[in-house]
Amino acid sequence: MMITLTHYLILAAVLFCIGVFGVVVRRNILIIFMSIELMLSAVNLVFLSFSRYLGTQDGHVWVFMVLTVAAAEAAVGLGIIVALFRNKQTIYVDEVKELKG
């Protein structure tokens, strides 16, 4: 049985959707953040699968870029979380309702 592009894509989709589930459902902002990292990795998987399929390495470069962005995002995002905790004494997003209209 051959492993094809479709296998990888479905796997990536499943992992991505688990990330979505985490983002939508969890209250803890740290876990939401980790779910976002999971989603980014799932996207990386898609990039690499297509690179493998097409036989080029441009996807690798883009994964590299995504990793950079993820690192930057983690730095800033965690900074925000720390600031949030400092001001609100909470890391639960349902307790932060400044956007309520």
């Binding site: 990888y8 990386n44 690499l48």
Partner: peptide
Amino acid sequence: TLEAHFIGVIQVLLY
């Protein structure tokens, strides 16, 4: 497994 050795290493290192 997808022959992306460099990225695999970077993934472990960075993430």
